[in-house]
């Protein structure tokens, strides 16, 4: 069984405050993965307001934005046999309704 991190990206900070219905949808999606026993870590939400980017030469900028206006809003870790399976799980997430996207990356474990 491999582990994959699903990284959620949004471009509108307003979407960080979901409505109760959106919250319910997200929870249904997450619990649905847990119900398949494929959730390795329920992850966390990453704050948009409390964020800094540190750059070479002691330059610190406000916010999580690097080059484009997109920011990482959170992550979870799933456990599946293949990356295709992890992608299938990601497809059910309601983030796409908000124009967001999900990056799927295999975890390379340190020894």
């Amino acid at each position: 069984m491999k582990e994959f991190v699903l990284i959620f990206r949004l471009d509108d900070p307003g979407h960080m405050k979901p409505s109760p219905e959106q919250m319910q949808e997200r929870m249904n999606w997450l619990a649905g993965i847990a119900a398949q026993n494929k959730l390795a870590d329920k992850g966390n939400t990453l704050s948009v307001t409390s964020g800094r980017t540190v750059k070479p030469g002691n330059i610190v900028t406000d916010g999580p934005y690097t080059e484009i206006k997109e920011f990482i809003s959170g992550y979870i870790v799933v456990k599946t046999d293949t990356i295709e399976e992890a992608v299938e799980l990601a497809k059910g997430n309601p983030i796409f309704k908000l124009g967001g996207n999900i990056e799927v990356r295999e975890v390379i474990k340190r020894d």
């Binding site: 319910q24 929870m27 249904n28 997450l30 619990a31 847990a34 119900a35 398949q36 026993n37 959730l39 329920k42």
Partner: peptide, 21 residues
């Protein structure tokens, strides 16, 4: 359902998964 969603995140069991569904 909301309570089951929270439960299954705390601890997986086949019975719990079926009840949630």
């Amino acid at each position: 359902l909301q309570l089951y969603n929270q439960l299954i995140l705390l601890e997986y069991s086949p019975m719990m998964a079926l009840n949630r569904t």
